[in-house]
């Protein structure tokens, strides 16, 4: 599904984000590259601390400039964002690119009405009157499916339910018709039925406006529903890329394979125990040598010469598809067979 003829709208090249802390340098993102075209959704999957949120905060320029070093290039519609002035970023944020956060209650101000918070962004970027901003807020609330928007526009966040707050957040993010929308786990705190509503809403809005979406999640089920392309992150690096179908059907990296086989599902045979990935995510202060996944990888010892612990596997992409792993295609075919078996059921 990667269109080669379309200019990428957002292009990230060899992005490195390092934080200096008292204990040393945290390499939160370590050489990440990806492109995104208009009207498509890129799903970024990874555990907590894999660098997925940091990447996106950096795109928006929301990192702390005093303690963060950003290397590499971020271009949005041909404009370089890394090192851009705060003034320029302010013009883009909320206007051309915007973000939906995970926890809607902490991201909304409890002291201001929903309508005022939605209208504020609009006024800032268009310089319109308060009345026009209010009308726009009502229109947005209506669009995201809030009943009685004329009344609810004057409500405070605590008067909204969890699902409605997330809708209000989406209304706020979309108020200026952004071309890039970053959604950071927007449905994680919601119930499944509400999650399904929110994802349908995002898909409809994308169809209507051709927004490019980066959808961050740790749930592969959500990815299967919403994404076109998938990027799997581990320890600040991309370990696998491809279309949704390629990654979920035929994972190439042992980490992706592990995520898929540890996931409880409605189709997985019940008598086969779930297969969790052993260990915990690596410390980015002192990351493992070579492949960052090797201490937890079931297959690391099968690679000859201890290559996994000594040499960083490179991500080689052919038509946007590839993984960073030392295993050969034949080895993968042999070791990953169980998953194919269970998926066929």
């Amino acid at each position: 599904m990667t269109s080669t003829d379309q200019q990428p709208f957002l292009s990230i090249k060899d992005l490195k984000v390092h934080f200096s802390t008292e204990d040393g340098t945290v390499k939160a993102v370590d050489g990440l590259s990806f492109d995104l075209v208009r009207g498509k959704t890129l799903g970024i999957v990874g555990e907590s601390g894999s660098g997925k949120s940091v990447t996106n905060l950096t795109i928006l320029g929301l990192h702390n400039p005093d303690s963060t070093t950003v290397e590499g290039s971020i271009t949005l519609d041909g404009e370089e964002l890394n090192g851009a002035s705060e003034r320029k970023l302010e013009k883009l944020r909320g206007n051309k690119m915007s973000m939906i956060f995970q926890d809607a209650l902490t991201s909304l101000s409890p002291y201001h009405t929903i309508g005022k918070q939605i209208g504020e962004t609009y006024r800032k970027h268009t310089g319109c009157s308060k009345k026009a901003a209010r009308d726009r807020a009502i229109e947005m609330l209506k669009r995201v499916g809030i009943p009685q928007p004329e009344v609810r526009v004057d409500d405070y966040p605590h008067q909204f339910s969890g699902g409605m707050r997330q809708r209000a957040m989406i209304a706020m993010a979309l108020v200026c018709d952004p071309e890039l929308l970053i959604a950071d786990e927007p449905t994680t705190a919601l119930d499944v039925t509400v999650q399904a509503q929110i994802m349908d809403l995002l898909k409809d809005l994308q169809k209507e406006f051709g927004t490019a979406i980066i959808f961050i999640t740790h749930d592969l089920g959500v990815i299967a529903d919403i994404a076109d392309d998938v990027l799997v992150m581990y320890g600040g690096r991309c370990v696998e890329r491809g279309t949704k179908k390629e990654v979920l059907r035929d994972p190439q990296h042992p980490y992706t394979w592990g995520l898929l086989s540890s996931m409880p599902s409605l189709d997985h045979p019940v008598d086969v125990p779930l297969n969790p990935i052993p260990g915990s995510p690596p410390s980015l202060l002192n990351p493992p040598s070579g492949c960052r996944f090797h201490p937890r990888c079931t297959f690391a010892e099968k690679v000859e010469g201890g290559l996994c612990s000594s040499e960083r596997p490179l991500l080689e992409l052919v038509d946007g598809r590839g993984s960073a792993c030392h295993l050969t295609a034949e080895q993968r075919g042999e070791y990953f067979s169980d998953l194919a078996g269970s998926a066929a059921n």
Binding site: S161, G162, T193, Q197, G221, A224, L248
Partner: peptide, 27 residues
């Protein structure tokens, strides 16, 4: 049924496709 149909599944192009029921509103 609605709850079952809302569970996100990490599978693509299922045959037959799973039932999709979208509940409106909140509890």
């Amino acid at each position: 049924r609605a709850l079952l149909s809302a569970v996100p599944e990490a599978t693509v192009d299922e045959t037959p496709p799973r039932e999709r029921i979208r509940l409106q509103g909140d509890v």
